[in-house]
Every structure is written in C-alpha cells, then in structure tokens.
Design a binder for these strands. Sequence first.
DNA 1: TCATTAAATTGTT
DNA 2: AACAATTTAATGA
Length: 250
Amino acid sequence: MYTAPSSPHDSTTAIPPLLERRRFATQAELQAVVWWQLLEPAHRLRVAQDMMVGQVLAGELVCRTGRAPTFWFGLLEGLLKMSNDGSQGQTITFSGLVPGGWFGEGTLLKREPYRYNVQALRNSVVAVLPIDTFHWLLDHSIAFNRYIMNQLNERLGQFIAAREVERLDSPNVRVARSLAALFNPILFPVGGDKMLRITQQELAYLVGLSRQRVNEALRVLSLHGAIRVGYGGLLVSDLELLRRGTFETA
DNA sequence: TCATTAAATTGTT
DNA sequence: AACAATTTAATGA
C-alpha cells in the first residue's frame, strides 16, 4: 500500500483537500475520542455539531508552516509525521503521530500560524475541531482545560526527549526512542495496545534513516527483547527497555 | 474453502 | 539503489 509519494519531504505538495470532501463525525468516532468522554452532555453536543472528519492521502499535508490556525487536529486512523524545515533546507522530524493523538493546541492557544508541517505517511483519517469551538471549550469546560494542560506538559517532555535523541544517540537508540514515543499513553491514548502497524519504510521516514538502517536497528532491538517484529508491524514487549536501553551493538 | 496471482513488505548486497 | 524472498490481499472456481 505504500507507494513512496514522490517524497514525503517534497515541499511542493499541494495544499490538503482536507477541507473538501469531509463529513460530520459519527457517534462511534466521537466515542472513540478520549477527551470527548470527559465532557459533560452540553459540551459533547457542541463538539458533535462542529467536529468533522476527512480523508488524507499519503504524502498530503494536514497542516503547513505559516498557515493561519483554523483547526485542532486528531488522528483517527493512519500515520502522520510532524516536522519542520530547518534554515538550510534540512527536515527536522519532531515526532510521529499515531491514532488517538491530537495536535495543534499550542498554535491555537496563541492564535499564531502553525510552526510545523504535518504530513500523512499513509492514507489517514483525520478529525478537525474548529478553533472557535476549541476556545469555547476552554472557556466552559474544566475537564477540557485539564486535558489540554496535561497534553501540553507531556508534549514538552517529548520535545525535550527528542532533542536528546537528535544529538548523542546511535541509530539503534534513535529508532528505539522514536518507537517508544509513539506509545506515550497521554499523547496517544489508544487503549494500551502494544501492537503497532507500521512498515519499516514508514519508520525510516519518521526517524530520518534509510530503510536498511532501520531494518538493522529493528533486528538489534528484537535481539535485546525490546520488541518483536512481524510483517507490516511490530509488537513492543518491553517498553521500559525501549525507552531507556542503550543498544550499541548486537 | 482452496488455488492462483498480484501487490506489498522485508531481507540482503 | 537494486533485487530476491517472503507475506498478505484479491480473485474466482
């Protein structure tokens, strides 16, 4: 299913048709949203009326640096990559995004343009909540405020961890930490599932390594018993080891 | 349900 | 980057 969309790093990719061909969220989709469950009935109703869902094809951008903030985004299905274009044209990947994750709250809070690109690594389903609804929730729901506060705090920790990884770590450890980040229960509350559907090619785009190198790293990680690799995905068997382990050699 | 074929993904150089 | 090997998905009897 993965036909390298010319290059997920291609900045000439057209503006997302996410705004077109989208529909309202179904009841099942709403109930799968963790923070929606925290709201009281009146607040749930407003969200149900305003939240929409759209399809994003592999390679397309969900949001783009410099664009005015319009939505808070949630990934329902698929795989996204959050990155930034450095001053010399290098692409810096901050984080991968797996289903259950919501992003853009920092930008919406400040009402400033997005500071990163979010690109679909495969066909994905994305939910959007209008910025006005987002602020209305902040004004009316304590539960929502608490959720956002938690999320901001957790994301801060994730960025700090990402910086450390970026500097001093071996490819093996980079892959390990990047994988571990996808299992953050606060940012990606996906029901404690240790199973991750991701191809080695997708993971390669995520961590910025070649597929070959990722393949080798996964081999080492599984030798250490941190993960089990399978066709089209992997299983995390020791999350703590994945987070803290040093996988220097095989 | 099974066999066949195409497509996707992995393993290796 | 290229290629072979393996796994999955799709198709039709």
